[in-house]
Amino acid sequence: MDKSMLQGLDGLPEEDQRRMAAVIEQLQVRDSMRMYNSVVERCFNDCVDNFTRKSLQKQEETCVMRCAEKFLKHSMRVGLRFAELNNLAATPDQSN
């Protein structure tokens, strides 16, 4: 979730901004949790396919670490592009 989602709060009185910030923080925590759960799910599904033992094999572990690393870098890049386009769309004069 990015900062650009806070736009539109400037007009509100301070107390309301605080309240809104709390709502946003809750959404962010929930969102991080989901992100965390979804990277685990994704990397498990893509990297682990052998169930003859209950411990991870070396190459599964390597795969999981690269997968998570890539996933996070991907999320950050998408976040940057998303914020740019989202800000663009939020500027009324350029919205069409």
Partner: peptide
């Protein structure tokens, strides 16, 4: 208004998540 703002945030979070998944 609060409800709408909270909804809009939720909407954008979901948009972001689906977009990120699709592009991955």
């Amino acid at each position: 208004v609060f409800g709408m703002l909270a909804m809009e945030m939720e909407y954008k979070v979901e948009l972001f998540n689906r977009l990120a998944m699709a592009c991955f």
